[in-house]
């Protein structure tokens, strides 16, 4: 039903390590996925799963303790991981944009939001001094802000959280980027506002063919908004498939557990199941084998072998030696 799409971003074997007081933490191990034009890929996982680290590594925004230890990330033909910082700075904002949790903190508190949008339009959006203001107001209208001419003069603290996130989206899409990375964009917003903001992100993507990476801990949100879902656990990508398949026929035990732990509209408290155990210690050297094995009820001897992502069905990959 959907036309074949071209890959906007292709991440291959991305590994990231953090130097900490307690030793080297292998935060990401050989993570790979692709996002097509107009598609939304959700990276889902609990805190510490590495979903945000993936995005930051691709953006070249890892904090100083973090280091990409291997892999490639192609945006079109450009390997972002081999791109010098100066060039990356130009690519960010123009070809990749990012929106964050807590939008108010990401906006400049002492500059009117219209001016902040105009700044980006001047730098990346091909606006001129004379039309930047009008285009900024237009951008505010496009993200559904009522009375945009008046709101353009407002400062971030005068706007609600949902409004600020819409301003952030207006800024992010100003340069018509190829890829939008949305890192928990609605965490902390009310559920009604979340729906409106997610609608908006979806509409922007559909309108421009922009690819979207949605980073979230909320499987239900991902289920509703993403074409494909990649489940992450302790720095490994454990399963990746189109949304309907992943939810209906999860192959990785962790994915199945995660689904069973999500309070859906249908369950009762008794039918909810927890995920036993906790995250493994990532400081041990070269943990190339399954990091879920310590929590897994399907563990067997074969699980001690080096783990790789393998196709379970067309378009459905799983990293498990004993899949469901």
């Amino acid at each position: 039903m959907m036309a074949p799409t071209t890959d906007v971003l292709r991440v291959e074997d991305l590994s990231v390590a953090f130097q900490t007081r307690g030793g080297l933490v292998r935060a990401l191990d050989r993570v790979g996925f692709t996002v097509g034009a107009g598609q939304t890929m959700a990276l889902v996982g609990e805190s510490g799963s590495g979903k945000s680290v993936t995005a930051y590594a691709v953006m070249g925004l890892l904090e100083t303790a973090g280091r990409v230890t291997g892999g490639r990330a192609f945006l079109g033909q450009t390997d972002l991981l081999a791109t010098p910082p100066r060039t990356m700075a130009r690519i960010r904002g123009r070809r990749i944009a990012m929106i964050f949790q807590n939008p108010r903190a990401a906006l400049n508190p002492i500059r009117a939001v219209g001016k902040q949008i105009a700044d980006v339009l001047l730098r990346h959006g091909g606006a001129t001094r004379s039309n930047a203001r009008d285009r900024a107001i237009e951008a505010l209208r496009a993200v559904g802000i009522p009375d945009p001419a008046r709101r353009a003069k407002a400062y971030p603290f005068e706007l609600s959280g949902g409004m600020c996130q819409r301003v952030m989206i207006a800024i992010a899409v100003a340069a018509r980027p190829d890829l939008l990375i949305a890192d928990e964009p609605t965490t902390g917003l009310d559920v009604t506002t979340q729906a409106v903001v997610m609608d908006l992100i979806g509409a922007m993507a559909r309108g421009s063919g922009m690819a979207t990476i949605l980073i979230t801990h909320d499987l239900a949100l991902a289920a509703e908004r993403a074409n494909r879902i990649a489940v992450m656990h302790a720095g490994h990508m454990v399963e990746e498939a189109d949304t309907a398949t992943l939810l209906a026929r999860p192959r990785h035990p962790y994915t199945a557990r995660l689904i069973a732990a999500t309070p859906t509209a249908a369950g009762s408290l008794a039918s909810l199941q927890s995920v036993p155990g906790g995250l493994p210690d990532l400081r041990q050297a070269d943990r190339l084998h399954c990091r879920y094995a310590g929590r897994c009820e399907r563990r067997q001897d074969a699980c001690d072998a080096v783990l790789t992502m393998r196709p379970a069905a067309p378009g459905h990959a799983v990293a498990c030696w004993n899949p469901l």
Binding site: V191, T192, Q194, A195, D218, L219, A220, L221, A223, E224, R225, L247, I259, T262, T264, A265, A266
Partner: peptide, 8 residues
């Protein structure tokens, strides 16, 4: 209606 759900 705004609550995300897995299915249904």
């Amino acid at each position: 209606a705004a609550v995300p759900r897995l299915d249904g």
